[in-house]
Design a protein around this nucleic acid. Structure first.
Length: 742
RNA sequence: GUCCGGUUAGCUCAGCUGGUAGAGCGCUACAUUGACAUUGUAGAGGCCACAGGUUCAAGUCCUGUAUCGGACACCA
């Protein structure tokens, strides 16, 4: 008998003759997945991939800004979440990953206003609320596909049929329902309080949205009657009629609280009142200060403690008010020098320090320098008691009298929500303990408008305009984090009691960067525990920031930005994903270099070649024929299932970096370097039985490895899977193949 | 100021509940037209920041020091 010639021997698919080129496959594969419908758990149940009563696994995608573009931070987030989702889907769970976008109210409005001003030289007021909103909405609508398509490129197996947008109809109902409920529970109130005012954007900004910039300015020492006071901001000083010192400061023991003295000041003599308060630090300068309660949070608190007058000095646009006398109407920036000139002339300046370094508050969402102002705003009371009627939160029985702050603490303290890595729990508690009432109103137009109407002294809160004439709606909109806080359940259809809500809430895990633990994580816990009596998610997994190879923050000015889309184009999505996973311990910043991505592209090709080699030698194999395994064959099989068990275990513990590394190491340095090498002689040897057995072992190694690698490298593994002869696989799509178990 | 991390091979970092050190990249030598243009084998290189302590045993636990970084607060 002669050996079959290459003519009549079955051939391996031709695609394997060339190296794996991701660009040739990725788009087609994604389309195939999407069209299969398996991103949707309902379809998985329908087609028998998941049992109707299977455990659920749900994640909400932290919604990227609707006008944004994909950066490495997104890419890392998508890689991590998609690995969890694909693993759980293959494991037979009812797996749901919900996509969405965020209106990013302030940032988006700023952007569009900027464009309009540049092109038409028109400001917000000249355009009008309705027209501006239309333009912003059009802009958001037009740009949303950019980020969504870039999200697809990473291979994200999101259920697009459940796409949510923070401003769409369902989310609008959720926001209104939550607001009204909180209003009726007296947890939302309106008050005059000092807030962070952005004179550029003409809106308040929350404490968390502020960034401090270091600046060097002159520091002035002024004569204030018998005292010397210091300031960097002379332009706020016109109304300073209180002089504050520490009660124990012996230098000023002869002055008593409430004592009045006459002092010569910027625009003439004024009556000053002595205030003794511990907020004055005796170590600081002369230990004496004057206060400006309307424009400083600390001063405001002192004034509140002693019931002092508060006067506005600077208006909302940054112009001085009549209290400034001859300087009234001038912008603070220009007035400063003139005021100093006048003070100099009056001999009220003792000394000037030229190089005083201090922090200036700026609006991190694209606005300008923050000017504290007292304004009438809406707040959420975090320390006010109320009755939580229904509760599934550990340690909080239904009907408990609680505060929102207590709910936020209990959720994490009692393990209703677990945070990884552990150390962020402390960060979370620290923040909650310092939490003040949350200012939720914004003076911008893009966003959910506050559902409150006014008529004379009447006030009405409801979803639509009240009956009768003469009502006007509050012109403010809600902080974008108010609607984001509802995200885990508003995306599932709340306030309707939908099947989705019953099935998928609480969600399994929230995966996000540690930089938004306060903005978002804490607020979701607040909103979910309050509105549903449920924790929003059982686990929080914090990833670090993606940095360059030297650990520096990526920034345009440093020129060290690595663009995920460029990486996908050059090396493929699989390589990009792996480079963001391996070597990235949870919560630690991850260094990334183009070389690293390149290295993982090689790995993709390695898998490709392993497949080609195994297929070449097994394509003619009869898998139905019984195989007699040698001891070594058994050993290989055992090692394979141990590896899978190991990888599964690390994924369950959220140690994706270990899971990825172990899978990588097995495939390259065990399967390829050792098993394939030793198999060569067997495959070309004379012993037909031994050869047949080894063929079956290698096929098993191949299909199992492809499954094991799929969550990490979905494209190349699926591309290979599609080329396998049907007799070698038990599922048409690798994406829904059953996760191997020992 | 308060809190939290880090300090391990030339570089970037792993090392979970304590049992005399690991990966990737880089480097050196050799092999290789090969399943692999993207390969393999072998190798060099670390008193695990420092000083004490607990222990039969300490990168690993405790205390302190140095140093780098981060978050938050304050800044008249």
């Amino acid at each position: 008998m002669s050996e079959p010639t290459s003519q009549n021997k079955p051939n391996i698919p031709e695609v394997f003759l060339n190296p794996y080129n991701p660009a040739d496959f990725e788009q087609k594969l994604y389309q195939m997945w999407e069209e299969s419908g398996f991103f949707n758990p309902d379809v998985c149940i329908e087609k028998g991939i998941a049992k109707p009563d299977a455990e659920t696994f749900s994640i909400v995608l932290p919604p990227p800004n609707v006008t944004g573009t994909l950066h490495m931070g997104h890419a890392a987030m998508l890689a991590i979440e998609d690995i969890l989702v694909r693993y759980n889907r293959m494991s037979g769970k009812r797996t749901l990953w919900i996509p969405g976008t965020d209106s990013a109210a302030l940032a988006t409005q700023t952007k569009v206003e900027g464009i309009i001003y540049k092109e038409e030289k028109k400001r917000r007021d000249e355009i009008g609320r309705e027209e501006l909103l239309k333009r912003i909405n059009d802009f958001a609508e037009a740009s949303k596909d950019t980020i969504l398509n870039q999200t697809r490129k990473m291979g994200s197996s999101l259920d697009w049929s459940r796409y949510a947008y923070t401003l769409d109809e369902t989310r609008y109902r959720a926001v209104m329902t939550a607001f009204i409920k909180m209003y009726e529970d007296d947890l939302i109130y309106r008050g005059d309080r000092i807030v962070n005012w952005d004179p550029n954007m003409q809106t308040t900004v929350s404490d968390d949205e502020i960034e401090y910039e270091e600046k060097t300015d002159p520091f002035y020492y002024f004569k204030y009657g018998p005292f010397t006071i210091g300031t960097v901001r002379p332009e706020t000083k016109f109304g300073d009629k209180y002089v504050v010192m520490h009660p124990d400061d012996i230098r000023y023991k002869d002055y008593t609280h409430g004592q009045q003295i006459e002092v010569e000041w910027i625009n003439g003599p004024i009556t000053a009142t002595i205030i003794k308060d511990e907020a004055a630090d005796p170590e600081m300068g002369t230990g004496v200060m004057t206060i400006t309660p309307w424009h400083s949070a600390v001063d405001y608190e002192i004034a509140e403690r002693h019931g002092l007058d508060k006067e506005q000095v600077i208006d909302e646009r940054g112009l001085l008010l009549p209290i400034a006398g001859e300087f009234a109407g001038q912008h603070i920036k220009k007035a400063r020098a003139l005021i100093i000139e006048k003070m100099q002339a009056k001999g009220l300046i003792e000394k000037i320090d030229d190089k005083y370094v201090h922090n200036v508050a700026t609006n991190s969402r694209g606005g300008g320098i923050i000017e504290p102002q007292i304004k009438r705003q809406w707040f959420i009371a975090v320390n006010k008691k109320f009755i939580l009627k229904h509760s599934e939160i550990p340690g909080i029985p239904s009907g408990s009298e609680v505060t929102l702050k207590e709910l936020m603490i209990a959720t994490v303290e009692n393990g209703g929500t677990d945070i990884f890595p552990e150390r962020f729990k402390r960060v979370y508690f620290n923040w909650i303990n310092n939490l003040r009432d949350w200012c939720i109103s914004r003076q911008i137009w893009f966003g959910h408008r506050i559902p409150v109407w006014y008529r004379n002294q009447e006030i009405y809160c409801g979803i639509s305009t009240p009956e009768g004439e003469g009502w006007t709606q509050d012109s403010d909109t809600l902080d974008t984090w108010f609607s984001s806080g509802l995200w885990t359940f508003s995306t599932l259809g709340w306030p309707e009691q939908t099947e989705d809500l019953k099935t998928y809430h609480p969600t399994a895990v929230l995966e996000t960067g540690y930089d938004i633990i306060f903005f978002w994580v804490a607020r979701m816990i607040l909103m979910s525990t309050y509105n549903l009596g449920q924790v929003p998610f059982k686990n929080v997994y914090m990833h670090g920031l993606v940095r360059d190879e030297k650990g520096k923050k990526m920034s345009k000015s440093l020129g060290n930005v690595i663009d995920p889309l460029t990486m996908i184009e050059k090396y493929g999505a699989d390589a990009t994903r792996l480079s963001l996973i391996i070597g990235a311990a949870p919560g630690n910043d991850m260094p990334l270099s183009e070389n690293k991505v390149k290295g993982y592209k090689n790995f993709g090709n390695k898998i490709w070649n392993i497949s080609r080699f195994i297929l070449t030698h097994t394509i003619d194999s009869d898998i139905d024929k019984t195989a007699v395994y040698s001891i070594r064959d058994e050993e290989i099989i055992t090692q394979l299932s141990n590896t899978v068990a190991d990888v599964s275990n690390e994924i369950e513990k959220f140690n994706l970096y270990l899971a990825g590394e172990k899978a990588y190491h097995y495939v390259w340095h065990e399967l390829a370097d050792i098993i394939l090498e030793e198999s060569k002689s067997i495959l070309t040897g004379e012993d037909k039985e031994q050869r047949h057995a080894r063929q079956q072992v290698l096929l098993k190694c191949l299909t199992t490895s492809l499954k094991m690698l799929h969550p990490f490298m979905p494209y190349v593994t699926e591309a290979i899977w599609q080329e396998l002869p049907p007799k070698f696989k038990n599922s048409e799509l690798l994406m829904v193949a059953k996760w191997p178990t020992a």
